[in-house]
Amino acid sequence: MSNLAPPSFESATKILREVSYEERLGGFKLSATAGNIPYEFYNLESVVGFLRTDPLDALIRLANRSSVGYIDFAVLARWVKEVLSDEELAQAIQRATSLDKPYADQVVPVKRLLEQRLEQCQVATAKVDQPSTDSKLV
């Protein structure tokens, strides 16, 4: 997994912010019986919470008890870059989501990246007086 450079207070604040209606990100909860339920995300934290797949074994055994929290990773990377202004994370997502891997194999690496960034941002914003160290964020 990529090691993301810790963000500055300013960048972290931007990454953690509630985005506007026009900037929201879309995703779906997929299940075999209930249809595809659309969801809108207005901050990174809710994306992290939502992103998931059941393991293949559960999918086979439980079939319609299982579900998939789906977000298009190309759209996610673009959202992270353009809305959250986090180019480093966007690039890391792109690297983690090579085209020849199925979606289910990409979820855990992407989720870990998002969790790492979320934690970094929470640390950075908790220390208000910490000087800016990050130059990679646009």
Partner: peptide, 18 residues
């Protein structure tokens, strides 16, 4: 309960509580 009754609030629950 089954089908949509068990799904309609699920993702909001996940978003809130992980």
């Amino acid at each position: 309960s089954h089908c949509m009754e068990l799904h309609y609030y699920g993702a909001y629950d996940i978003k809130k509580h992980g």
